[in-house]
Design a protein around this nucleic acid. Structure first.
Lengths: 203, 203
DNA sequence: TGCAAATAACTGACCAGTCAGTTATTTAGT
DNA sequence: ACTAAATAACTGACTGGTCAGTTATTTGCA
């Protein structure tokens, strides 16, 4: 079991940073949660800033593997539904949402971290979705006149906004909206837009 | 000109809070920007936390008037285009985006502020858009089987995601995406979805 | 002159980062 | 296998700097 300490510390750090933000987080609290003392953190990380960066790098690296999206012979409906549902569950996971919020909140102070997240998480996921959209467009299953990268990201945005507004800003305590309704509406909107289909065939 | 000092201070405070976040912002910097000294802040605000809350309350209150959306006899195309374009320009304004980021970043520490923002800004704007969507749906210009509140918010989400990813996280430095392309894709997506229209009538 | 507004100097709490000392673990010699 | 020596991991008290909040002093206006 080589080097479990750094991971132990980073796990604690992520929780504290997510709850308090970079500045308000204290190394003593992080150390306490990790079951060590502050001095020990300095055996593995050269300072608070490094700990923050390393922790996010570690978490971001781990996040990449999570979304495998093999777009085999799947229909447009299935693709959209799967993307929307997985985005929805992702943005309702407290931890993931907290990391997003943390990055957004600290983007000014740590632009390189923000950019790494963009490159390693957002772009990678976005390209995967865009790729699937392209394939279906080539097969004539989806329209081909939209930039698949932009369309894919917009699709995720439709879900993201509910994570931020309902969960993070606590909107659900004022106006609850069920995940089912969000999923249904977003999927339908993504497929057919506000005008709907001319022919309401099938379904 | 009664009481211009508080506003002067809050303007400075907003800038500093937006750039640094609540914890890292210092009263000395805020005071300096406002052209006063720290002690003066305490003549008008009882402390840092109060200043933060009051500043956002003031800014949030001011934001409500901005989006007037008279949905007269407007077509579906015009409505969507107008919503998308105004959201787009809003989320590219540095200050607005910073306030959103600030709220997101500090939502854990100031849940009541986050909720106020939700209630007074998000919900109000959302209802306005939903209202317009409903009217058009009743006239048969838009499909009526979607929850207009959810659809309207999702629409804004499509734009929000580009503000966050491209501007705030600095994604445009890695992969620039033009506002024109975003607008075109989102509008088209919102109206007709990924499948497009059966009959591509008109333009 | 009187007094509110503003300043500037000050205080005390907090916290990142350091380090001397302690404990646990590994190595190596018999 | 035993243990002494060496090394690595860890601790907790301490320091120096920062900053919210307070107080004493000055400014300027009626």
């Amino acid at each position: 079991m080589p080097q479990k300490r750094p991971v132990q510390i980073m796990e604690a750090a992520l929780g504290v940073f997510a709850r308090r933000g970079f500045s308000a987080a204290t190394l003593d609290e992080i150390a306490g949660r990790a079951g060590v003392t502050k001095g020990t953190i300095y055996r593995y990380f050269s300072g608070k800033e490094t700990l923050f960066i390393e922790t996010l790098r570690w978490k971001i690296g781990g996040a990449i593997g999570e979304l495998d999206m093999p777009e085999g012979q799947e229909s447009a409906e299935t693709l959209v539904e799967r993307v929307v549902r997985s985005a929805l569950s992702l943005f309702h996971e407290r931890e993931f949402l907290s990391v997003v919020a943390l990055l957004v909140g600290e983007a000014n102070r740590f632009p390189t971290v923000a950019k790494r997240y963009y490159r390693d998480v957002i772009l990678v996921m976005n390209r995967t979705i865009a790729q699937a959209v392209s394939v279906l467009a080539e097969r004539g299953k989806l329209r081909a006149d939209l930039d698949p990268l932009i369309a894919g990201r917009a699709l995720v945005g439709m879900v993201l906004v509910f994570g931020l507004s309902q969960e993070l800003l606590r909107g659900k305590e004022i106006l609850p909206i069920s995940e089912r309704d969000i999923a249904r509406t977003v999927i339908s909107l993504a497929l057919d837009g506000l005008r709907g289909r001319e022919s309401r065939a099938g379904r």
